[in-house]
């Protein structure tokens, strides 16, 4: 018997010819919870994945003028109330199992967006501070990275433990780079994380990677806020 990992409703898998004949992907969410997640579809900024009618959004144009250090970010879902609640329970309450909600979509986004064009991508998770690790016991970024079929290298380290969620955009952009690098990475890197908000975190990580010889940095995130 399958239960929705989020609401514990029973998941009923109807047996049809197609489900019988094909190996079905296991579902983490019931239809009702799954229906509350919104995939980003239609036109989007080709750099940051925000829903956008022309090719590059204003923010990304600005990043480009300043000399951007990421190739592009791909996000899967719109950051709505449901995904916010799911991520809160997953990350802050420490409900590790909830990463399963993202497994199928994360894998197919990786395969469609990144795996084909670039065979030698190394996945780099965003590191967690020591104090966060003490509280939570796992790094959500690493938890996502480990669901993908590619080598994972934890080459970044966080200098101090500040809560990102509590900061406004200005403070986040202004701050010094919170990461340090433990070994240089010579292949292209894919940063995997939960939310892309201003893109600062990804770019700070990318800045360090590029500085130490990484040829290109991409990013794959669950939600675009």
């Amino acid at each position: 018997m399958n239960y929705c990992v989020y609401c514990y409703e029973r998941i009923e898998n109807s047996l049809t010819w197609s489900t019988w004949l094909t190996v079905e992907k296991s579902q983490a969410l019931c239809a009702s919870c799954a229906g509350k997640l919104e995939m980003i579809s239609g036109k989007r900024c080709k750099v940051c994945s925000r829903a956008w009618s022309s090719s590059i959004c204003l923010d990304c144009q600005q990043w480009r003028e300043l000399g951007d250090n990421i190739e592009r970010n791909y996000s899967i879902f719109h950051y709505n109330d449901t995904i916010r609640e799911i991520i809160t329970q997953w990350k802050f309450r420490g409900d590790y199992l909830l990463r399963e909600i993202f497994r199928n979509e994360l894998k197919s986004a990786f395969e469609n967006q990144f795996a084909n064009n670039n065979a030698s991508l190394t996945i780099v998770p965003i590191p967690l501070s020591e104090s966060r690790m003490q509280e939570r016991g796992f790094n959500q970024s690493l938890a996502l990275a480990e669901m993908l079929d590619a080598p994972v290298k934890q080459v970044l380290r966080r200098k101090s433990g500040e809560k990102q969620a509590k900061k406004n955009r200005k403070a986040r952009l202004k701050r010094d780079n919170p990461f340090s690098i433990t070994e240089p990475l010579k292949q292209a890197a894919l940063i995997v994380d939960d939310i892309y908000t201003t893109g600062t975190t990804v770019r700070q990580a990318a800045q360090l990677l590029r500085l130490h010889g990484c040829p290109a940095v991409y990013s794959l995130t669950i939600a675009r806020s």
């Binding site: 409900d95 590790y96 967690l128 796992f138 690493l142």
Partner: peptide, 16 residues
């Protein structure tokens, strides 16, 4: 459910 603990490098049960 279980999570791999980043502190003691073992899997731990937790209550959902």
């Amino acid at each position: 459910s279980e999570y791999p603990c980043g502190i003691c490098q073992r899997k731990h049960l937790y209550c959902r």
